[in-house]
C-alpha cells in the first residue's frame, strides 16, 4: 500500500471531525448544522475506507461495505434533517435553532 501515510490520514480525519463538531456546536442555522454533521461523519467514513486497505480481503471488503452503508445513512439523515428544517420553517418562520426551545422544562 503506497501513498498517504497513516499519520497524515489520522490528522486529516481528526481535523474533519473537529471541524464537524465545532460547526455542530457553534452554528445556529439548522442547515449549517446538518452540513457540519455530514463533515464529522465523513471523517468516520474516511477512516473505514483507509484502514480497509490494510486488512485481508474479506475484512477489507466489509470495511468498504460499511463505508457505503454509512454514505446511505448520511443521505437518509440529511433527508430527515431537511424535512425537519422545512417543518420548523413552516411553524416558526425561521431555521435558527436557538429560537426552537419548546422542549425547555
Amino acid at each position: 500500500m503506497t501513498g498517504l501515510p497513516v499519520a497524515d490520514l489520522l490528522v486529516l480525519s481528526g481535523a474533519l471531525l473537529a471541524v464537524g463538531i465545532f460547526g455542530l456546536l457553534t452554528r445556529r442555522n439548522f442547515i449549517l448544522i446538518l452540513i457540519a454533521v455530514e463533515v464529522a461523519m465523513n471523517a468516520t467514513i474516511l477512516n473505514f475506507v483507509y484502514f480497509a486497505a490494510f486488512a485481508p480481503t474479506a475484512a477489507g471488503l466489509s470495511g468498504q461495505a460499511i463505508a457505503v452503508v454509512l454514505i446511505g445513512f448520511a443521505a437518509t439523515e440529511v433527508a430527515v434533517g431537511l424535512a425537519i428544517v422545512l417543518a420548523l420553517n413552516r411553524i416558526k418562520g425561521t431555521i435558527n435553532v436557538a429560537q426552537a426551545t419548546e422542549l425547555r422544562e
Binding site: I21, L24, L25, T26, R27, R28, I33, V97, A98, A100, T101, E102, L103, R104, E105
Partner: peptide, 14 residues
C-alpha cells in the same frame, strides 16, 4: 440544564 436548545444537547452528548 434543560434549555431546549439543540446545540446545548449536542454539547452534552460530545
Amino acid at each position: 440544564a434543560q434549555t431546549g436548545a439543540v446545540s446545548d444537547y449536542a454539547g452534552y452528548v460530545i
